[in-house]
Simulated scan of single mutants.
Amino acid sequence: MKNFTLLVLFLLSGCGSVVTENDRFVGFAHEDYRLTQDSILYKGDCGVWTDDFMLAAEGQESNCLGEVVIKYPKGTIIRVAKIIDEFGGSSGRCWRIQVQVKGRRDLALIDIPACHLWHPKSWVTSSSPFAPVVLDFKPEFAVKADT
């Protein structure tokens, strides 16, 4: 029984957990941000590291970017919808951040570069759940939308 319990704990430690409502993310989760670069919505092509879509700044490259779906101009508003503490392979745990494009409820949640080493350059200030920094967008990718 002890071995079974250890096996279950080991397997669960590799899973992701949604942590969006954690107090650590007040002022980031469910907030609107304005893109500071022209960006492109791609079909996600990174296996379990993305869902259906990934947003990347124009010029960013990665093996995770599939076919182009639509281009979004600088100034497009996105909202942080979900933050997931996820297993990141040999690099340990990492944040997986999903957004929605304002006015586009027809799209599923969209991953942004944040977590996996095959993602384009990360859009957020910290990729690690263990780092004590406040999670936010790097201003080269997105800034708080004017209210």
Results as ranks from 00 to 15, higher is better:
M1V: 09
K2S: 10
N3W: 12
T5I: 11
L6M: 04
L6V: 12
V8A: 13
L9N: 15
L9G: 15
L12Q: 14
S13P: 08
C15D: 14
T20F: 07
T20A: 13
E21T: 12
D23Y: 12
R24D: 10
G27F: 06
F28P: 14
H30L: 08
D32S: 14
S39W: 00
S39D: 00
S39L: 00
S39N: 06
I40V: 13
L41E: 05
L41C: 03
K43E: 06
K43M: 05
G44M: 04
G44C: 00
G44A: 07
G44W: 05
D45E: 10
D45H: 10
C46Y: 02
T50R: 04
D52N: 12
D52L: 09
F53W: 09
F53H: 11
L55Y: 06
L55I: 12
L55N: 05
A56T: 15
A56H: 04
E58L: 07
E58V: 07
E58A: 13
E58N: 10
E61W: 03
S62G: 03
S62K: 06
N63D: 15
N63V: 11
C64L: 03
C64V: 05
C64K: 05
L65Y: 09
E67S: 03
E67Q: 04
V68N: 12
V68H: 07
I70K: 09
I70S: 01
K71M: 08
K71H: 04
Y72Q: 07
P73C: 11
K74N: 01
G75C: 05
G75D: 08
T76D: 06
R79V: 12
A81T: 04
D85F: 07
E86N: 02
G88A: 12
G89W: 01
S91M: 00
R93I: 01
R93G: 08
W95E: 04
R96E: 00
I97D: 00
I97F: 03
Q98W: 00
Q100H: 04
K102C: 11
K102R: 09
K102F: 00
R104M: 08
L107T: 03
I110M: 03
A114G: 10
C115A: 09
H116R: 09
S122N: 03
V124K: 02
T125M: 08
F130Y: 10
V133S: 11
V134A: 14
L135A: 03
T147R: 14
